[in-house]
Design a protein around this nucleic acid. Structure first.
Lengths: 321, 321
DNA sequence: TTCATTTATCGTATTTAACAATTAATTAAT
DNA sequence: ATTAATTAATTGTTAAATACGATAAATGAA
């Protein structure tokens, strides 16, 4: 079999073909002439063909050698570029990273991170997908993205959640609402208020339901629930004085909420952890790993929107997930 | 550098990717699992990238591994087919052979050889070029053909001449000529005859000139020489009774000479050796080497045209030329 | 938990490749 | 013709790469 043959033999062959001399080719390959001679002979014996006609004075390709030469050169070149491409990915001179996150994360938190990262790794393509909490997890599970940024929505055992920020729930009210100017609002004060909800599969709505089931929150069930699929829609409804809403601070910090007021809820204070979500047992690409570190680092040091706190976390390599 | 990487690493990679298991892949590669593990790890370290995410239960390609897999498979496949093609040539399952020979050799001697050879090696393409003696040598020197069949025209030191047949000169005369019915004709008897010559660069004409210069042949120089470039043309002129000609038996045995008579010349008997002409210091391709053997073998045993004799020659391999 | 299975690791043996020195062959120059 | 110079082939030895066997650690299932 040709199992014993290798790229090494092809390199030897092409170099001798190029130089027309074993001695010279050996020197260019940083080998001794004897070693090179042996390698070429090995190739010839394996294929059962004489590739060179040699005298001590001249080394010439046979007809078959001539025929094989461009083939061998292409094989070597293809091999080297394939390996080179891999190394470029490893060295982050190329590649791509995909992140799934909530719209507010993308618009409020990521821009400075991306800016910093792109300056350092301009050749890496970045794709940001805005998704709801459940979708973020699904995208990570499906390998649609390299990692996600979002709440620990389902505590999926296949996923690894690394908390980076603590977000805080509060009410969002329009100008002139009775809560305006309050330092804080108690959950109980929400009775009698018309509440606007985010659609069921969002993290916010899920947690609210959890509270209600635990009895910590008595809200009137009687009224028909009014739910909207995204925060910007809720903002518009609040501005129209249709009602008020309970939202995390981050979600209420986007442009859509400009003229509205966020007042933190107390008794109990309710928080949610924003995590870096990756798939257990799957390693990150070098580019993704670096970007993830950038995110964590920025979240630790950046100036955050009101009521968000970075979650202190020992900085360790992500290889040991 | 990736100098240490080899096709072996790619085979290991693709096999593990295919099997999804080191143990299974190792068995298919006839290796131990530990060895295969080491090889894959070596590949990963050389490119600086994790290609597989492994647990003891599952081996999955990373995104980069997934990306690399088809590339690696193509590299391996290209490599194997390239080597396979060489081996096929060596095994004479494919290839081509070119021979240069005189028209009479091609039409009178080669057909049964070619027929035999083609039955045994139907995949080898054969090209036959009819050339004059000088052209035959030139074609061999230029590597236009693998070998030639013809006279030792110029005794070129770059060429190796292997005699296989002895041809004999004689006069070719039309019906009713005064020589008709003779057993033989003396060279001296040619005085007074109108002689038709082959063009200067043909072997026949060259040898006639040689004789004349040596004084062994007194022909009238006075008459304007009438020369024709190929034997068929001479035959036509003889048939028109323009003159007669001195030709080797082989050349006068083709269809063109059907109604003409060949009478051997004596005092002296003049012969020419027909040789297999190959280039010194250049090895023959396996296909050419085999065909050359076929030619020699047939020439030794075949039923030859009149006045041709096979030149007994020890049969040795052509590798030691 | 325990069991079966699988990958990783470690030390050793074997195979392969590289080296240095020498031989044989070829060409050019004397 | 002889010599000198150059080059590929050969040989014996050393170093490195590769494979092996046994064992440990990890994982998922019974």
């Amino acid at each position: 079999m040709n199992t014993s043959l290798s790229i090494r033999h092809l390199r030897a062959f092409t170099e001798v073909a190029c130089c027309g001399s074993f001695t010279q080719a050996a020197s260019r390959l940083h080998l001794t002439q004897s070693s090179l001679t042996a390698t070429v002979k090995q190739l010839e014996q394996s294929v059962g063909l004489t590739l060179f006609d040699r005298t001590t004075r001249r080394v010439l390709l046979t007809a078959q050698g001539e025929q094989f030469r461009p083939v061998a050169e292409k094989l070597i070149s293809d091999f080297d570029t394939a390996i080179g491409d891999l190394q470029a990915i490893a060295g982050q001179q190329q590649g791509q990273v995909g992140i799934a996150a909530s719209p507010s994360t993308i618009s409020r938190l990521l821009p400075p991170v991306i800016d910093d990262y792109r300056q350092q790794f301009p050749e890496i393509a970045i794709s940001l997908r805005d998704d709801s909490a459940g979708q973020i997890e699904q995208r990570v599970l499906d390998n649609d993205v390299d990692f996600g940024i979002g709440a620990n929505h389902s505590a999926n055992p296949e996923l690894y959640y690394q908390p980076v920020l603590t977000d805080r729930y509060g009410v969002v009210v329009p100008e002139g609402h009775r809560f305006e100017g309050f330092e804080s609002v108690q959950w109980q004060a929400l009775i009698e208020e018309e509440l606007l909800f985010l659609s069921a599969d969002t993290g916010i709505r899920a947690q609210l339901n959890q509270f209600r089931q635990a009895g910590q929150l008595q809200l009137s069930d009687q009224k028909a629930i009014l739910e909207v699929s995204n925060p910007a829609g809720i903002a518009a409804l609040i501005r129209q004085r249709i009602g008020i809403s309970v939202l995390p601070a981050l979600a209420s910090s986007t442009e859509s909420f400009k003229a509205l007021h966020f007042i933190p809820l107390v008794e109990p204070q309710m928080r949610r952890e924003i995590c870096l979500v990756s798939r257990k047992g799957r390693s990150l690409s070098p580019a993704a790993s670096t970007l993830l570190s950038f995110v964590r680092q920025h979240f630790l040091t950046m100036r955050l929107p009101a009521y968000l706190e970075s979650t202190a976390q020992p900085q360790h390599s992500n290889q040991d997930l």
